[in-house]
Computed example of a mutant assay.
Amino acid sequence: MPDDVRCLVDDDGCRGQVPRDAPVMLCERHLAAAGDWCEAEYGASDVLPSPCVLCGSRLGVRHRSGWLCAVCEWRHGDIPDDELPPPRVDVVYYLRYADRVKIGTTANPRQRFGAIWHDEVMAFERGDRALEQRRHVQFAADRYERTEWFRLSDALRAHIATVAAGIDDPWSRHARWMSEAIALRG
């Protein structure tokens, strides 16, 4: 942007110098006013004063009315009602043991996995028995007969990579689904 560009605001007689890197043709005073308005209207991302009680995230959005978790949108400071049962969130899971993968479903993965010998939780996919059955059909060629265990084929490995894309820890995805379900319940 040339050095001689002037502020678009002329109703107060401003016409001040526009910074070279300004995203719009406003002087610093009017850019600051626009930023303040955006922050008041839409909130500002910042670090929460303490971790979210639902999902553990530290990222929040600060509004005039208070903080919201940027991950699950739980209002910071609100306490979940411990008398309510936890929400049911069904997941299809992919557990690896050696060169085999178990495709199953559960609403309580921590409890379920305690009963299954495994090396790694590879991924979670939100879904119930219907989705689990579709995955069993999809990978039927790799299935060990009359079990929920499958050979870790290239096709299955690619599917799991797609399901897990962008997620370093499958448990963080499950925690988010649980916190979202609790937040929706209110």
Rank of each mutant, 00 (worst) to 15 (best):
Q17H: 15
I167P: 07
V18S: 02
A181N: 07
G56R: 05
K102N: 05
R157T: 11
A107K: 14
H30D: 08
R129Y: 09
V163D: 06
S179L: 00
D12A: 10
A161D: 13
E125A: 11
K102Y: 10
M1W: 12
A140V: 08
A32V: 08
E28P: 09
G16H: 02
R62K: 11
V121P: 02
A130R: 05
R29E: 10
D11K: 08
L31Y: 03
D90G: 07
V163R: 07
D10A: 11
V47E: 04
Q111W: 13
P85K: 04
P109I: 02
R15E: 11
Y93E: 10
R64Y: 06
W177R: 00
M178R: 01
V91R: 06
A123Y: 00
W74R: 00
A32N: 04
I160P: 08
R29P: 09
M178S: 04
H30C: 08
D142W: 01
C69H: 00
A98R: 15
N108R: 11
Q111M: 14
V89P: 00
P23V: 04
P87K: 02
L26F: 06
D36R: 15
R20S: 13
R173S: 08
R100V: 12
C72N: 01
C27K: 05
E28V: 15
L152H: 05
E180W: 02
R173E: 09
A40F: 06
K102V: 04
Q133A: 07
L68W: 07
Y97L: 10
R185N: 03
D168I: 07
P80W: 07
G114A: 14
R88H: 06
S50D: 09
S179A: 04
F124W: 02
D90H: 11
H136Q: 09
V163A: 06
W171M: 05
D142K: 09
R173Y: 10
E180I: 01
D169L: 03
A183Q: 09
S50A: 12
S153M: 04
R134L: 08
E132K: 02
G77I: 09
I182F: 02
D168L: 11
T147F: 02
P49E: 01
D168C: 10
D169S: 00
I116R: 09
T105Y: 06
P86G: 10
D36Y: 15
C72M: 05
D3M: 12
V92H: 00
V18P: 03
A141S: 08
D90T: 11
R58S: 14
T162I: 13
L184W: 12
C72L: 03
W67I: 07
V163T: 08
D82E: 15
